[in-house]
Design a protein around this nucleic acid. Structure first.
Length: 228
DNA sequence: AAACCGACCAACCGCCACATT
DNA sequence: TAATGTGGCGGTTGGTCGGTT
């Protein structure tokens, strides 16, 4: 067990906790999540820190309502992939698996008249797929975005063969670029892809801070990395 | 104005696979 | 090779908020 008797805090994160986590990531980078509490004294387990970063603090996360294009994309991807949210999210720029999953369960499943709560099937994992995901670690393209052929399985609604899945996925790429261009990048005059790549490749955290402090965004934080 | 209810979503949990020792 | 640590995934929970009665 992690923490060795430490009492980890649960529930919503405070701004101060976010700041501590951001500071840690600025200095140490992503990963090594279980060290966060040791290094910073943050009373959060590694998993919680990782989740907070991936679903909220990461500049890769787009906030706000889903557009029609995104809805359509998710619906079609879900037809192909079933409840494999990380794969779906990997094809919807700026959205996390958690966002996509929530959006599906609260909006799209109703819209489509799908009872998403039924059939509590534990999602299967596929060794080849997992391996591929591990091997593709390019930060600018979500590591989950590597789409792999699905085995024919009764756990999901996928009924397509490998080639059909690949072809269908290819067809989404133009749409994805459109969604990127239309919805994500231009809020602060910094293209999303550009910002993300600059941040990750060039480690440009000033760019990141401008993103966080962008007053047009719903959420921003009262701190920035002014000493970098 | 207060109580109730349902929708939404952030966060937690359990499990699994891979990496490291 | 086995044990342990770590990261990632999907399912689920529970707190918050807005609408309705």
């Amino acid at each position: 067990m992690e923490g060795g008797g430490n009492e980890y805090k649960k529930g919503l994160w405070t701004v101060e906790e976010d700041r501590i986590l951001m500071d840690y990531i600025r200095e140490h980078g992503k990963g090594k999540w279980n060290r966060v509490n040791k290094v910073t004294g943050l009373k959060r387990c590694g998993k919680s820190c990782r989740l907070r970063w991936m679903n909220y603090l990461s500049p890769n996360v787009k906030r706000g309502d889903f557009s029609e294009e995104e809805d359509d994309l998710i619906i079609r991807l879900h037809k192909l992939l079933g409840n494999r949210w990380s794969l779906i999210a990997g094809r919807v720029p700026g959205r996390t698996d958690n966002q996509v999953k929530n959006h599906w369960n609260t909006h799209l499943s109703k819209k489509l008249g799908v009872n998403s709560k039924k059939g509590k099937t534990k999602a299967k994992t596929y060794p080849d797929l997992e391996r591929a995901k591990k091997n593709s670690c390019t930060p600018s393209s979500n590591s989950n975005s590597e789409l792999q052929p699905l085995p024919n399985s009764d756990s999901n609604s996928n009924i397509f063969g490998d080639d059909e899945v690949a072809a269908a996925i290819d067809g989404f790429d133009d749409e994805i670029m459109n969604i990127k261009d239309n919805n994500i990048g231009t809020k602060s005059g910094v293209g999303f892809s550009d910002m993300w790549e600059a941040m990750m490749i060039g480690n440009d955290l000033n760019l990141y801070s401008s993103y966080l402090l962008d007053p047009t965004l719903d959420d921003h934080y009262p701190f920035q990395f002014d000493h970098l």
